[in-house]
Simulated scan of single mutants.
Amino acid sequence: MTGPMTGPVTGPVTSATLAAFSAAWNRHDIDALMDFMSTDCIFQSAAGPDACGSRHVGAQAVRQAFAAVWHAVPDAQWVGGRHFVHGDFGVSQWTFTGTAADGSRIEADGIDVFTFRDGKIHLKNVFRKVRPNLPAPR
């Protein structure tokens, strides 16, 4: 296993683990992200047809859903991260920024609610406060 800025650490999940997970998102590093996830992981996105958004179950489905975020918003970043862990439960707070396919800017505040199992992220459940699209940068 690698250190807190490049990949998961051994032992229980801590706020430093979630900070490293966030850093992997900002690097668009799918392999590092998946190292943090359990093999039977679940990702519940902020939007989708169900009350939970879109639900992706299992490492392969989660990997594809994570990668789709960067496809949709190639300059996606999660800034201002704050992370909290208590036992097998954690929260990351952030501001999502990026550029949509139509060129408009996206900015949304949100949180990830996590559950952990055996030192890995088992569930990543996303909640966002979406603001109207901002004008494209000039």
Rank of each mutant, 00 (worst) to 15 (best):
P4V: 10
M5S: 12
T6S: 14
G7P: 13
G7W: 11
P8Q: 07
P8M: 07
T10W: 02
G11T: 10
G11V: 00
P12Q: 12
A16D: 03
T17A: 07
L18S: 01
A20C: 13
S22F: 13
S22C: 12
H28G: 00
H28E: 00
I30W: 08
D35W: 12
T39F: 06
C41V: 07
F43M: 06
Q44E: 02
P49W: 06
A51T: 14
A51S: 14
S54D: 04
H56S: 10
G58Q: 09
Q60E: 15
Q64V: 02
A65I: 09
A67M: 15
A67H: 11
A67S: 15
A68Q: 09
D75Y: 10
G80C: 14
H83A: 06
H83D: 09
H83K: 07
H86V: 01
F89C: 13
G90I: 14
G90Y: 11
W94Q: 10
W94D: 01
T95H: 03
G98N: 06
T99G: 03
A100R: 04
A101V: 06
D102T: 05
S104G: 10
E107Y: 09
A108H: 01
A108W: 01
D109K: 05
D118H: 11
H122S: 08
L123K: 11
K124Q: 01
R131L: 04
P132R: 07
L134S: 13
P137M: 00
R138L: 15
